[in-house]
Amino acid sequence: MSRAAILYAPGTNCHEETVAALDRTGIASELVLLRDLLDGRARLNRFQAAIIPGGFSYGDHLGAGRIFATLLVARLGEQLGEFLAAGRPLLGVCNGFQVLGEAGILPARSLGKRGMALVENQSGRFEDRNVRLLVSRNESPWTRGLEGQILEMPSAHGEGRALFPESRLARVALRYADGFGNPTAHYPENPNGTAGAVAGITDDTGLVLGLMPHPERASLPAHGSQDGLKLFQNLARAL
């Protein structure tokens, strides 16, 4: 049976709802402490997929996601390389996306060599908003069959403005959209001011997805929208 690892570290705070969202898709998941990986009590190769949820890992010290990413690359680079080489899906949400960017996994699977940054929102503030996301044409198992759809879900972050020095490397998966479903630079529909309205990207295999908004907060019947669940259902299909 396929299992997904939900990696969490001190300061991660979206791991439990991520478990709850995966439960709805039938994917078995396991919370895995980064410390247990670092100390050898757990290994990534037991899992067929991995998710790094949101939060403020290590207090966002030195930059959002940077300490987590540094530990991941410097101490677990080999495991992670094997995991990715085996073609296993990896998702980073919010702080998890920041980790993937700081680790060089997104946009180009270049561990330890950064090709993007998620910097402070244009407003200079944390922004708690509901956003609409337009799903791009992107050969990714995460978004298969959703192309052209609008997904609604909460977004809550202070550092979500994406910068790509070489934009050809980033494959856009999701864009912030306005009320008409068009990609938008307008605040607050685009809560962080990212150029091109980029909310989420994949690597060139489509297996690694990073996005700022929170699909796990739009996955349960009690939530205002259950659009986020579609991404996790796609994961279930891919496994």
């Binding site: 949101g54 944390f126 708690d128 809550a156």
Partner: peptide, 14 residues
Amino acid sequence: AGSRFDSTVQGRTV
């Protein structure tokens, strides 16, 4: 002020 505080974290907010 209110939009600077996360209101949906934990996935419990209805």
